[in-house]
Amino acid sequence: MKLKQLAAAAAAVVCLAATACATSTTSADPTSGAPAAGYPVTITNCGKKYTYTRAPSRVVVMNGGSVAEVSSLLALGLGDRIIANAQSYGASEVPGRVDAIAKLPTGGIKLNDMMDIPREAMIGLAPDFVISTYDGGFRAESGFATREDLAAIGANTYSPESTCGDVGTVSGTPSIEDSYRLLRDLGKIFGVSDRAEKLVADAKAKVARIQQQVAHLPKKKAMLIIPGMAMGSEFSSVGAKAIWNDIMAKAGVENVFAGASDQMFANPSREQVAKADVELLIVVNYMSKDPAADAARLFDEFPQWDAAKDRSFVVLSDSIYLGPSNDLAIDRIAHVAHPEVF
């Protein structure tokens, strides 16, 4: 997911954060003239209402350390609407997704120090729809075009409802329902709700089948770590509170560090990691040359883990975050954690 130094690393999972949204109500009309068939539609986003008289055709996707938004657009068949995309991750469980993202236009933009699109460059793109990973992507103090700036040039704005707050914060209980909401919101905005509902229904059916297969089994205990995203101490990127807990639970797995922090990362000490009951290691591939080698290194360091004795690990990438592919993460985790039922 796009780099941003410390903010980028935290933002790589900011798609999972959720805080209270603003309460004011405004309306931004991205076009003029008569509404297209099926329009107008109104979306409430982060406490404000946005009216669309037709499907957006000049879409800009900000970075923010996510691929949830660009991946959702691609899953909905809307890649041709994107005039500038700043999101990338370099790995995906979806065949062809990495190449598809790489082929999207970037708008020729020189990104700022946060590896994102600064205000003047954004205005110069003349978008009619701008997606930010979180609401902070529209803050003037960070050098970004505000929602008001963009409304003034006829552009509507959106960030996933689960990420209306600050980068790195988590409130509520993140779940794959947040991913479904993102798809449904975009489906409504672009007039392709039928596609969105099909994606959601297919994912739900797959997840339900997996849950049924593992429901009678004891939950395996897992540790999730993102080796390429350490932000200080060696274990600062051990997962705590985020969407991955719901993903694990649906795969018949329990995050041993889920309750260690109310933030996305637990940041345990080496001693705490050594004492943890780890039956499954989940390695999230973020800019890693060899995720399997990352797992092997941890097994060598902590041979007392059952996971180390069994060499039990799974490598995931974008499917573990907010986005259209959580069912793939659930499937892969379940197959490794409970191979006896598959």
Rank of each mutant, 00 (worst) to 15 (best):
S142P: 00
G191I: 05
D149W: 06
D194F: 00
I117D: 07
S236R: 06
A215H: 07
V200F: 04
S171L: 04
A145N: 08
E120A: 15
A196D: 02
K219A: 15
A222I: 01
K241R: 15
F235L: 04
G172M: 11
G108S: 12
A145M: 11
I225Y: 10
I226Q: 12
P174I: 05
G168D: 10
R119F: 08
S175A: 14
T163S: 15
V170Q: 07
R209V: 12
K221T: 03
I225E: 03
M223E: 05
D166I: 00
G154Y: 07
G137N: 11
A151V: 02
G137I: 03
T173Y: 10
G239S: 14
I131K: 00
G136F: 12
L224C: 02
I123K: 12
L183Q: 10
R209I: 01
F144W: 13
G168H: 12
A215E: 12
S159M: 09
Q211H: 00
A121W: 05
A203E: 12
R209L: 11
I131L: 15
A155W: 05
I189V: 15
L224S: 13
G239K: 02
E177V: 09
I225V: 14
K198A: 15
M248E: 14
L217P: 12
L186H: 08
G191M: 05
F144G: 00
K221S: 10
G154L: 01
P174A: 08
L186R: 01
Q211S: 13
G228A: 09
L125R: 06
G136L: 08
